[in-house]
Computed example of a mutant assay.
Amino acid sequence: MMETEYTKYKAFENYLKKEGWYIYGGNILTPDNYVVNAPAMLEGYLASSDILACYTLSGDLQKEEMPIQAKTIVYDQPIIDAYKPDIKEGRWLKNADIGTNTVEAVIASNSYGIGLGDTLTIHEYGAASEDSPVSVEIVGILADDAEYYDISFSDNMINYKNLFASVSKGKQDEPVLLMSREDIINTENGSELLLMQGTVLLTWKEGITDEEKKRNIKYMSEHCFIAQKEELSVVIQKSRKEITGELQKYVPVLACGLLLTVISSLCVGVIVSKQQWKYLAVYNMLGLPWNRCVWIQTVTYIIIEGISLIASILIICILKLFSLTDNMAIGFGAWQFIFCIGISLICAATVIVQSLLVKKVPPYRLWQRE
Rank of each mutant, 00 (worst) to 15 (best):
K205T: 05
H223D: 03
E206I: 02
R215D: 14
I226G: 07
K218L: 13
L193H: 07
I226Q: 05
G207K: 01
L202E: 05
L193E: 01
I208K: 04
I208L: 09
L202P: 09
E192G: 10
K229D: 13
R215N: 15
K229R: 10
E188G: 00
G190E: 01
T203S: 02
N186F: 04
T203H: 04
Q197T: 10
A227V: 08
K238Q: 11
C224S: 15
I208M: 07
T203D: 00
L193V: 00
V200P: 08
L232Q: 05
L193I: 03
V234Q: 13
L193T: 04
G198A: 06
C224E: 04
I236G: 01
I217W: 14
W204K: 01
S191D: 15
N216A: 03
K238Y: 06
S191M: 11
Q228C: 10
L232I: 02
V234L: 13
E188M: 09
E222T: 11
A227H: 10
E222V: 04
I208T: 10
E231P: 03
T199Q: 13
I226S: 05
H223Q: 14
E192D: 15
N216S: 05
M220Y: 08
K205D: 07
Q197K: 11
S221G: 14
N189R: 12
K213F: 06
T209N: 09
E231R: 04
K205I: 05
T187D: 01
S221E: 15
K213Y: 09
Y219V: 01
K229N: 15
K229F: 13
I226E: 10
L202W: 05
E206H: 06
D210A: 14
E192P: 00
E211T: 07
G207F: 10
Y219K: 02
Q228S: 12
D210V: 02
I226R: 01
K238E: 08
L201P: 02
E192M: 08
L195P: 00
E206S: 12
Q228L: 13
M196P: 07
T203N: 02
K205V: 06
S233T: 09
M196T: 04
L232N: 03
T187E: 03
K205R: 12
L195C: 11
S221Y: 05
K238T: 03
L194N: 08
L232F: 06
I226W: 11
R215L: 14
E231I: 00
K238A: 07
L194C: 08
V235Q: 03
E192I: 00
N189F: 14
C224P: 04
K205H: 11
K205S: 09
I217T: 11
Y219Q: 04
G198N: 04
